[in-house]
């Protein structure tokens, strides 16, 4: 509708205004995959070569997307000939994991090592025949770390971690198992960001697209264990880490049960993201009073 000013002059017609709506919710988890790749390749070179003088890496290759990405990054950082991919199946491990593990080795060109951990795990379990599936899974994870550290010691290499930020925040890993390697390129990337990076690195699509699984128990998947998909969980985790209160997260349209689940898992697992709690006796307690950074 046209209006006029008190002096009778026409004002601007309301139809002359274009109403612009700002979209204030971009994709919170988008990464520049090429930039992240270059950043992590530099990180690996810096940590291994410049800081430690080590030129070889050992990666546990499970057949999943996380270890596939780490294998590809290590191959670019150090050269494929300087990276050993260790496949460590147990008797119950899925055939698909084994096939995908081989695919990772072939596509990256890294060195292949197959070590079946069944005998080592079962040797212990003969003393504990009633161990639950969860205990069995933890034994496998810790056995794999024994293998990775020993294989590293054998050739003067460093074991490289593969845990992502989503599973770290959920405590969805075996303490002092999967989280043991001294450096980890993926620990600040959510699972959905690892998928973005994997596609950029040309990780075989079958590996990126398949349901994530720890493959410690037959048929398990991460998302069934966690009770939420990574796509939903990662966005909620993003806001939790920024310090948003649950009510403010809900106000953005997330499901209340999802928010409660994520918050509960994060709050219950702070201890898993730390080293052992040490009784402080003196005024020189390590990492309490005596403070030195990891690279000092």
């Amino acid at each position: 509708m046209k209006t006029t000013s008190p002096r009778g002059q026409p004002n601007v017609d309301s139809s002359a205004y274009a109403v612009l709506r700002a979209h204030l919710r971009p994709d919170e988890l988008r990464i520049d995959a090429d930039l992240v790749k270059r950043w992590l390749v530099n990180f690996l070179r810096d940590e291994l070569i410049r800081r430690r003088g080590i030129r070889q890496a050992v990666v546990g290759v499970s057949g999943g997307v996380d270890s596939a990405v780490v294998a590809a990054l290590c191959a670019q950082a150090l050269g494929p000939a300087n990276v050993v991919g260790v496949r460590m199946p147990y008797a119950t491990s899925s055939v698909l994991s084994s096939l995908h593990g081989r695919l990772v080795i072939e596509s990256t060109g890294i060195r292949d090592r197959l070590i079946d951990i069944s005998a080592a795990v079962d040797g212990y379990l003969r003393e504990e025949p009633d161990a639950s599936p969860q205990r069995l899974g933890n034994v496998m994870a810790r056995m794999r770390m024994i293998v990775l550290f020993d294989q590293s010691a054998k050739i003067g290499a460093l074991p490289i971690g593969t845990g992502n930020k989503s599973e770290r925040m959920f405590g969805y890993f075996t303490w002092h198992g999967d989280d043991s390697p001294p450096i980890n390129p993926l620990g600040d990337l959510f699972k959905t960001q690892v998928w973005q990076l994997a596609r950029h690195l040309n990780v075989p699509s079958d590996i990126v697209a398949k349901p994530a699984t720890a493959d410690l128990i037959r048929g398990q998947t991460d998302e069934e264990d966690l009770g939420i998909t990574y796509v939903r969980a990662d966005r909620i985790l993003h806001y939790v880490l920024l310090g948003y209160a649950p009510a403010d997260i809900l106000a953005q349209g997330f499901d209340s049960q999802d928010v409660a689940l994520v918050k509960r898992r994060v709050d219950a697992t702070h201890w898993k993201r730390h080293l052992a709690t040490t009784a402080v006796i003196s005024a020189t307690a390590i990492n309490e009073f005596y403070l030195r950074p990891v690279d000092y």
Binding site: W39, N42, F43, D46, E47, P293, D295
Partner: peptide, 8 residues
């Protein structure tokens, strides 16, 4: 430049 304890 360079990394210190993971911080680049």
């Amino acid at each position: 430049v360079g990394f210190e304890g993971g911080k680049g």
